Amino acid sequence: MRIAIDAMGGDHAPDVVVTGAVEAAREWEDTTIVLVGDSAKIDALLGKDKPANVIVRHASEVIESDDEPVKAVRRKKDASMVVAGRMVKDREADAMITAGNTGALMTMGVLVIGRIKGITRPALAPMIPTLNGTGMLALDLGANMDSSPEELVQYAIMGSIYRNKVHGVHQPKVGLLNVGTETMKGNELTKAAYPMLEQAPVHFIGNVESRDVLNGPCDVMVCDGFAGNIMLKALEGAASTIFSALKTELTRSFMTKLAAVILKPGLMKFRRSFDYSEHGAAPLLGVDGLILKSHGSSNAVAIKNAVRQARIAVKNELVRSISTEFSNGSEM
């Protein structure tokens, strides 16, 4: 198995990317890690103790976080992200991982690798942590601001296959993000999507309200990227505010500091459950190759976990399973 990693993508690249890749290579010796990017910088970080299953593929350009996606992908032919994508397209790599520009990744996935036949738009599908510890796959959370009812059905099918193949969830429960649980609640999009999801080859449980998301009401939640991204950022902001307020209160006096010592193990465990690094990366579902998008602020642990995630997806033939499902008539 060969996994290409965009060594230049992300807020802390290439340092943490290389560190995470090396840790992954040492744990899974049967996997070849291809670090794509500035070979001089990468080699300097690897040093003399480079694992035998880590190789470097030089790329002379980098797509920056503020680059316009379409122009960057078309003009920067030798950008690390684009080179890694071509490796997947040409079957030189079984998967690719990047913490780089999300818009550029979406564009690269469509223009360089291409969509699976029957898929209208690929969707970014991150895991949202839940209190029961199982997490919930949500798509789309920002790759596409607008979606059609047919595309929400495609998201549901792809998300269900991912939860089954990568997480081993039998008959994943699918929910539709809405403003109420009643059947005819919502806007024109959700009203049109609801009956279509009922007829789709998924285990549809109905509407899900955002206030219930962290309780894990379903295994897969579908929504358009606009609503999904607002919900995600609201959750992130709320979690950050709560942890900050707790820290302030627990350091206010001697007694609260004493209480903090007792509560610390439980609070740390709770905080880790909301840590993106523990969940690895979000798959870009719908492209004809395995692409995983790590958080822009990913640390080495997140990169290593993304490799673990990619290995499972490759072994369970995720992309082929999605392609087969849609070639058998699930396309809308």
Rank of each mutant, 00 (worst) to 15 (best):
K41E: 12
H58S: 13
A52M: 00
A13T: 13
V36A: 11
A25S: 13
G47P: 06
D43K: 14
P51Q: 14
P69A: 10
W28M: 05
S60R: 08
V73A: 03
V34R: 12
R26C: 08
A52W: 01
E27Q: 14
V56G: 08
L35P: 06
L46H: 12
E29K: 15
A13R: 15
V16M: 10
H58W: 10
T31M: 12
S65L: 08
V16D: 02
E68Y: 02
V17Q: 09
A72K: 11
I33S: 05
L35R: 11
R26S: 06
T19L: 15
D67I: 10
L35F: 04
K41V: 00
T31F: 12
R57S: 04
D49Y: 01
T19V: 02
K71T: 10
P14D: 06
H58N: 13
A40W: 02
D30Y: 07
D43I: 02
D30N: 14
G37T: 05
G47E: 07
A59D: 05
V17F: 00
K41W: 00
D43G: 01
L35Y: 06
D15G: 01
G20W: 07
V54T: 08
V34I: 15
A72H: 12
D66P: 00
V54A: 03
V17P: 11
A52S: 14
K48H: 09
A59G: 09
L46E: 09
W28L: 13
L46Q: 13
D49V: 01
W28G: 00
E61Q: 15
A52I: 02
T32M: 04
P14Q: 04
V18G: 09
A21F: 01
W28P: 01
V62W: 02
S60A: 14
H12M: 07
V70M: 13
V18H: 11
K48Y: 03
V56F: 08
I63L: 04
A44D: 05
V56T: 08
V34D: 06
K50Y: 04
H12A: 08
G37K: 01
G20V: 13
H12T: 05
H12C: 02
E27M: 06
L35Q: 05
L45R: 15
S39I: 02
I63F: 10
E29Y: 00
H58P: 10
S65I: 10
V73C: 06
R26Y: 10
E23F: 00
A21W: 00
